[in-house]
Simulated scan of single mutants.
Amino acid sequence: MSQITLRQIPENVDALIRQLSKEQKQSINKTIIELLEKALGVSQDSNKKRNLSQLAGTWSDRESEEFKKNTAQFDKIDWEIWENENLH
C-alpha cells in the first residue's frame, strides 16, 4: 500500500476528523481512509445506513414542549368536516 502525506489541513477539518476518529474508536488514519473511500464511492460498506443517533434527543425540554404545543392542533378532529367529506 502506498502512503500520502497531507499538509496544511484546515483546523476545522482536522478537528472534525479527530472527533470522528474518537467517536468511532479507531485511528485517525483509518478514519481518513474511510472518509476518502466514501467520498470516492468505493467504500467497502456502501450499503451501510447513515447513523442519525447524533440527532436523537437534541431538543431541550423547553423546545420539546414548545413543539408539542405548536403541533397539538393537528391532533384535533373537526367531526363536522370529516363527516361531510365522507358522505360524498
Rank of each mutant, 00 (worst) to 15 (best):
E11L: 02
T5W: 00
L20K: 06
E85S: 11
Q8T: 02
S46C: 00
D45R: 05
D75F: 06
A72M: 08
T31E: 10
L87V: 07
L20V: 06
Q73T: 11
L16A: 09
K69W: 06
T5E: 07
I4L: 10
M1K: 02
V42C: 07
K25Y: 05
F74G: 06
I81E: 15
G41P: 00
N12F: 05
Q3L: 12
E80A: 15
Q26E: 13
S2T: 06
K68H: 12
I4P: 02
I17T: 11
P10W: 00
I28N: 04
E37R: 06
A39T: 04
K69C: 05
E85D: 13
D78C: 07
R50P: 03
S46P: 00
R50Q: 12
R50K: 07
E66S: 14
Q8L: 02
L16S: 08
N70L: 11
L6E: 03
N12W: 01
E63I: 04
Q8Y: 08
N47S: 07
L20N: 11
W82Y: 10
L55N: 15
I81S: 15
W59T: 09
D78R: 02
A56M: 09
E85I: 05
N12P: 06
L16K: 04
Q26H: 07
V42I: 12
K38F: 04
S53F: 04
V13C: 05
F74P: 08
K48H: 07
T31V: 06
S60G: 12
Q44A: 12
L36K: 08
E11V: 04
T71R: 05
W82I: 09
E85A: 14
N86W: 05
S21F: 02
I9S: 10
D45V: 05
V42R: 01
H88S: 14
Q19N: 14
L16N: 04
N12C: 03
S60N: 09
T5N: 07
